[in-house]
Design a protein around this nucleic acid. Structure first.
Length: 171
DNA sequence: GCCAACGTTGGC
DNA sequence: GCCAACGTTGGC
């Protein structure tokens, strides 16, 4: 069994959406490296569900892969935000998987907290923040899972600048 | 809203 | 094949 981290913006599709749906396809991935990771997923692989462009950003729960990679049909839907003229039913360029809701953590494991932990310094999340589907080691998964179920956050490192905490504006 | 980092495109 | 220009992501 392998471990992954998948990002989504909570306003678009958050952990609560997945909880309500139970099982959902993970469509809209339009990056080759992320696509390759989707393709490598096996039934039963575990997924950390990460909220990006959120306040705060962080891992909010878990899911599991219940259907392996198959063509992402939103790529040839001209009405979709994810339409890509270069992907067709004959020559699909983009893939998606189905995931099933497993749990929502009692608290968010924030990006700030992850960055502060030396044991998580090698996470792809920390070193390639733009990759939306990324591998996670079993150890990393276990550490985050434990944090997610722990009662209180470990004290995060003191922020480097006050600007970090300026209120987020809606765009 | 700003902007750094990263990915993709296209001219040559 | 290189690389500048451009577009997107995502943290802040």
């Amino acid at each position: 069994m392998k471990y992954w981290l998948m990002k989504s913006e909570p306003e678009v599709f958050g952990i609560e959406h997945l909880r309500r749906k139970g099982v959902s396809s993970w469509d809209g991935v339009r990056n080759y490296q992320a696509r390759n990771n989707l393709t490598a997923m096996q039934l039963g692989d575990r997924v950390l569900f990460y909220h990006s462009n959120a306040n705060p950003n962080g891992v909010v729960g878990e899911a599991e892969v219940v259907k392996q990679a198959y063509p992402d049909h939103t790529a040839w839907d001209t009405t979709s935000d994810y339409y890509d003229a270069n992907s067709t039913p004959d020559q699909p360029r983009w893939m998606m998987v189905d995931v099933r809701f497993l749990s929502a953590y009692p608290r968010i494991v924030t990006l700030e907290e992850i960055r502060a932990l030396p044991t998580l310094a090698d996470m792809v999340l920390v070193n390639n923040s733009r990759l939306s589907v990324q591998p996670v080691t079993p150890t990393e998964y276990q550490i985050i899972e434990r944090l997610g179920h722990s009662a209180a956050a470990t004290a995060p490192a003191k922020s480097r600048s006050a600007a970090k905490h300026r209120p987020r504006r809606k765009t």
